[in-house]
Structure formats: structure tokens, C-alpha cells
Amino acid sequence: FEAKTSGSDDLKAIISAISTLVEEATFVATAEGITFRGMDPSHVALIDISWPNSAFEKYECDSDIKFGVRIDEFSKLIKRADKKDSIEISISEQNMLLVTVGKNKKYKMRLIESSATDTPLPKIPYDSKITLSSSRFDKILGDVQVVSDYLTIHTSDSKADFSGKGDSGEVVIDLEKDIDEIGEISSKEDSIGTYSLEYLNPVVKAVGTTAGQITCEFSSAKPLRIEFKVANIGRIHFYLAPRVES
């Protein structure tokens, strides 16, 4: 197995996103590319990544392999790459990950026992969909966070608003007012869902600079799915369980 990126931004974004949820990550490499799926320890959030072979400058994988890494250790190595540096990874017979950063930095990192299970994700329908730029979404999260720990998303017909409510006050951000930055709002059913900023903020910050557009899909009191559209990466899906009135 050998994979070489062109530039380091995509891998940095992926590792940064994964690091918001887990300390140890298991990747699966097949002839088609590299995938990762993992949940935080309390099973509130899940990241599902599919990175196709076509996105790499060079990619070879003769047989399927799983490899586990400590994400903070891997992250430290990846951060040594400049923006334009390629990163090449392969696995040695001694069960070490060989990471070549740029032209001349050759790291070896110990792999860990992979504990991942392949739980398939069910296909669930979503009633509402909002597409907007990731930088706009990041700002909205910041706007809500000053009064609340939770983001409430509400759609009605083809309108949507984001809101938050806390002990000190509340905020409503009407998306119609800045339609220029909103790509699309659609809803089959009026939907309202509340999601924790503790999980949303870090992943949006992690992938935000690399992703142009994001798509939020949800149904009332059901999980939120965010798709980050990153040019070279096939798919980054982030799932977040809702907060519901008890």
C-alpha cells in the first residue's frame, strides 16, 4: 500500500476533523481509496470519510488493509508539511507507518491495534436541506454561541432560520435576509432540530477552510448530517444526534 497526496491541505483537514471526535483512528485502504468511519466515545457524533484513489497524486493498494494510528501523533507529523508539500504514506513490514513529508522528511510512526468495527450506516431520509458556504455557517455558529450552547435549525416551506437560546438571551438568524450566501433551502416537511455547538464548532472549524460549500440535512428531532464539499475528497459526512426536550 502506498498513497501520495498532492499538497497537504486535504490530509490536514481530514486529520483535524477526525481529531475532534477520537484519539485513535482506524483507516481502511482498498484499491478504490481510503475510508474512515468513527464515533466519539459517547456516540453523539460520527464522521464518515471516503477519499477516492483519483484524489491522490499516486495511489497503489494491492490488498485491503486496516491501519490504526494515534491521531495526535499522526497530526503532529502532518503539520510539519507546508501547504505545497506532498505527503506519502506506506506501511512497513514491522507494522510501522512510513510518512514522507515533502521531499526529504521521512518519519516512522508506530501503528496501533485497530479496534474498528464495520457497522454499516443506515440510509435515512431527511426532510430538510440547506446549502451554504462553510465560512457563512462558521459565522452563524459564532453568532449563536454568544448566547447559547445549542443551535436550533428551523425550516418552513423554503425558508430557514438558525437560532439559539440561553440563560442570558436569544438570537434568531433569518437566512432569507442574506440569500446571496445561501445556495439552496428545501423542505418536504417543516423541520426543527437542536444540535450541540460543542460538537459542531470544532468540526466546522477543522474542515471549514478547505470546504467551499456545506449541505445540512435533517428532520425534526432527528440527527443532522453535514456534507462538506472538499474539492479533492470524495466525501466527508458528519452526523450529529439531536438534543430533544425530555
Partner: peptide, 13 residues
């Protein structure tokens, strides 16, 4: 206050 749910109950139960 709203209570945090987990993904298991929506996806795998």
C-alpha cells in the same frame, strides 16, 4: 433543557 441523544437509537435500534 433539551437532553442530548445518541446516534445508536436513531441508526441501529
Amino acid at each position: 433543557k433539551p437532553k442530548q441523544t445518541g446516534l445508536d437509537e436513531f441508526f441501529w435500534n
